[in-house]
Nucleic acid binder design. Structure first.
Lengths: 154, 154
DNA sequence: CTGAATCCTTTATGATACTG
DNA sequence: CAGTATCATAAAGGATTCAG
């Protein structure tokens, strides 16, 4: 169940597993001596550079928006609104911001009577969507474990 | 430069490259037909489940805190405060929240005269730190590209 | 349907001061 | 050093209304 990790239907194998392997792999790389040497000042500097975009990408609603667009390919305004359970104002603001940052593009299909609008991810947006998958899967796994341990049947 | 991706010093090879390969790999998996079939309702349901924890993990300051602790292994209160340029109240709140969620643990070393406190990531915290790496690297790459294209020398 | 405009409420955050 | 307490402000969010 769920959009990410529903792998049995995919010929390509288990996404969850691939992510798991990957996390182990970079875990090993990061464990290797070198990381511990990083000074607090270096980390501070790095964060200072990353923070502006980080704040946009990882702010409220944004990961959700990116995720929906990533999975669905595209979505209309009200479709997103319903999916996220968000007010139009906030959604409108966020989409505007994301468009400004080059993460999302707005398209209009004038064919329809009430012209239909749809949002899609740009290349950057797709990259971010992809990059968010490990975090989402990790959270998902955590929730599964909790559900498990609370369920007396397991 | 920077903490993530400073691979030349690591024997284990290029982190950036590993992340890149991984993203391509899961990109392929996700491209394979199956994803597009996911209904908007399924995505909505999934998000509803993920959101509570997602909001904690991806809220302001939290990714930064996790990242610093991830890279450094541990940090004291004021050390974090300086690194993030955050007020004590907010930091205190966030650390309390993260402790409550089992993402961070607080340790006290009573040996020191003013007892020294240090924060570390729990297993879950480390998993999340790991999972955040692709997002951070993607943002970092993006910033590098921008810097590049703005610089006439390149 | 797709939003922009308004108004209003609730958090979140920041600065400052203070304690053990 | 490691916070807590207080106060003031800004930012975020929601509800409603309206227009193209």
């Amino acid at each position: 169940m769920g959009s990410i990790g529903r792998n049995s239907k995919c010929g390509q194998g288990n996404l969850d597993e691939v992510v798991q392997q990957f996390l182990e792999r970079i875990g090993e790389i990061l464990e290797s001596e070198c990381v511990r040497e990083v000074s607090i000042d270096e980390v501070t500097e790095e964060l200072k550079a990353l923070t502006p975009l980080l704040r946009v990408v990882l702010s409220k609603w944004v990961p959700e928006i990116i995720y929906v667009l990533f999975i669905r390919g595209e979505a209309g305004f009200n479709e997103l609104k319903r999916a996220l359970n968000i007010s139009s104002r906030v959604l409108s603001d966020k989409l505007g911001e994301l468009e400004g940052k080059g993460i999302v593009v707005r398209g209009i299909d004038a064919q329809h009577k009430p012209p239909r609008v749809h949002y899609r991810l740009t290349k950057l947006g797709k990259e971010l969507g992809l990059a968010l998958i490990p975090t989402l899967l990790t959270i998902k796994r955590k929730l599964r474990q909790e559900a498990h341990s609370l369920n007396p049947l397991h």
